[in-house]
Design a protein around this nucleic acid. Structure first.
Lengths: 160, 160
DNA sequence: TATGAAAGCCTTGGGCT
DNA sequence: AGCCCAAGGCTTTCATA
C-alpha cells in the first residue's frame, strides 16, 4: 500500500513529552491492558519508570481514559446510525442536552458548517430510530445515515 | 437531567451473554486497566472466574480491543476535522483505500445517503488539510467541518 | 532512573456444586 | 459448565540510593 503520510512543519510541539512517552502511548493505544513490566520491556525501561510516566500522562490529561472496545452487533445493537443536525432556531444548547440524555448516543460533536452537530448511536432495532429523531426535530433538521461498514475502524493517533 | 431512555422490544437478544458478562463489560468499557481481582470484587466473582469470562468475550469477538484514549490537542494535533464524501464516479473502493493510507484519519465509515463516506482526522495544522483533501477530490465531492467541541465525548454502550 | 523487599496479583490445577 | 480455593511465580509498589 502507498504511504500517503504528509509531514508538515510542526507548528505545535507538545511540551514535556519525549519519545519514550510517545512509545508508551503507542503501546497503550492498542493494548491498554498491558502490564507495567511488559510496557517497560517493550520500550526499554524498568517497571517503576514506566509507572511514573504513565501516572504523569494520566495526571496531565494526555491519557483521558482506558476503554474496552466492544462489538455493538454482538451485544444486540445491530443498527449504527450517524445523524447530522441543522438547527432551525437558536437552540444549540438544547440539542447538546438532549444528545447527552439519550444513552444510545455514544458520541456527539459540535462543528462548523450548516450542520452544527453530528452524533453516532447504536440501536437494537430501526424502530428505535423514529422516537429518538423526534426528540430533535423541534430544534432543527436532521439528516440520518445508516453506517454499513467501517473501511477504517477506529485506530490510534500516529505518534512518533 | 431527564431520562430519555427508550426501551424497545428486544428484537435481537445476544446469545450466551448473561448479566455478569454485561457487568464485566460495563466495567471494562470505562476502566480497561482494572485487574481481574478488582473486576471480581466489583461483580462478585473470583479472579479465575472473571478471567474465564473475559477470555471468552475476547475469543468470541465481543471485546474487540483495549485502548488508551488520548487527548489529540495535548499531543500536538489541535485540529480535528470531519469530512464527508459524495463520490462523483464509481470509485468507492478507491476512496476507502486512500482513507486507509492516510495515518491522520483515525476512522472512516461507509454509510447510506448521498455522502457515502465520512471520516475523522486529527491534524497538526490547518495547512495539512488541503493536501489531504486533494487526495480525495479526484474521486468525489468533499464537505469538511472543523470539530470544535464534543458535548458528548465518546462513552460506553448502555448495557444491562 | 534503578534496585531490592514486601504486598498483592495472575495463573494453574484440583475439586465442588 | 461454571465456580471457588490454594500455591507458585510475577508484578507492582515503596523505600533507598
Amino acid at each position: 500500500m502507498a504511504n500517503r503520510r504528509i509531514r508538515p512543519e510542526r507548528a505545535y510541539e507538545p511540551k514535556g513529552i519525549d519519545d519514550l512517552d510517545l512509545r508508551i502511548l503507542t503501546e497503550l493505544q492498542t493494548d491498554a491492558r498491558a502490564g507495567l513490566a511488559e510496557l517497560g520491556r517493550r520500550v526499554g525501561l524498568s517497571a517503576p519508570a514506566v509507572a511514573d510516566r504513565v501516572r504523569r500522562l494520566e495526571e496531565t490529561g494526555v491519557i483521558t481514559g482506558y476503554r474496552a472496545e466492544v462489538d455493538p452487533r454482538a451485544l444486540g445493537f445491530p443498527v449504527t446510525v450517524m445523524v447530522r443536525i441543522r438547527p432551525a432556531i437558536r437552540e444549540l444548547q438544547r440539542i447538546a442536552e438532549i444528545a447527552e440524555e439519550v444513552p444510545q448516543i455514544v458520541e456527539c460533536h459540535r462543528m462548523t458548517g450548516d450542520d452544527c452537530f453530528f452524533f453516532v448511536m447504536h440501536l437494537r432495532t430501526v424502530a428505535e430510530l423514529e422516537p429518538i429523531l423526534d426528540l430533535f426535530t423541534p430544534y432543527g433538521h436532521t439528516t440520518t445515515s445508516l453506517i454499513h461498514t467501517s473501511p477504517v475502524p477506529r485506530r490510534p493517533l500516529p505518534l512518533g
